[in-house]
Design a protein around this nucleic acid. Sequence first.
DNA 1: GCTGCATGATGAA
DNA 2: TCATCCTGCAGCA
Length: 269
Amino acid sequence: MPEGHTIHRAARLQRRRFAGAVLQVDSPQGRFDAGARMLDGRELLGVDALGKHLFHRWEGDVSVHIHLGLFGKFKVFTDVGRAPAPSDGVRMRWRGDVGVMYLSGPTACEIIDPDAEEALRARIGPDPLAVRNGDADRVVTTLARRRAPIAQLLLDQAVVAGIGNVYRAEFCFLAGIDPRRPANEVSSDDALALWEMSIRLMTIGERIGRIVTVDPAEVGAAKPGDLVRGDRLYVYKRAGQPCRRCATPVRSAMLASRRVWWCPTCQPG
DNA sequence: GCTGCATGATGAA
DNA sequence: TCATCCTGCAGCA
């Protein structure tokens, strides 16, 4: 499910499997009929991701913008003959010699022109999975200037791109910061630590395809991929359960209409 | 079968 | 801050 690591992983896997292939494109659901007709029979040239946005580059200078939103999913089937029938909700389908891909539930699936793409990219902040020079400074500076709760800003895609509700709660835990603390009261060292852990942990998430923030050594595992469900996160959705570090019950609250979790002892206000 | 919820984001008020 | 859109699935009757 879709935080930035999911999108970047999807982009990488789609690139590997489908780039260079001529694809049959349609929209079983019908809501992308016009776009699908335009793409049908073209070669997919490339796939790239920025934050939670993904772009498909097609032969003939056509780009498609995808945003999975909360519900969107890509499903890829390697064995063309054995791909299941698409569900009613499949917005876009690809079929080719190399595989089959179904996209369902996206917030956005649209042909995008260069100007619109440029405008979109301009409002996306630094992406921990696509780091550029100056990104760390930009994030630290932005956080230092804003009074909104730190956890709220970590979800703001103009501030940092790709972090979602799971990672933001986990990063605040690992930094020892109460998620409700105003961002301008977070030290620049802590802000930098948040940025650097987002790079480290989201990179792991992109590689293994799931969110793991718990240090494997803490639960006697060798690597993040070995952690079982239930051991992978410190605070997300663990309200009332004991903190893994200090046993204090994990708390939760709504923050700008999204729920956030934290340990009141490890994350003092 | 129905209800509510979920790792997201937007536009109106 | 609220309503709305997007889909699938767990939990319940």
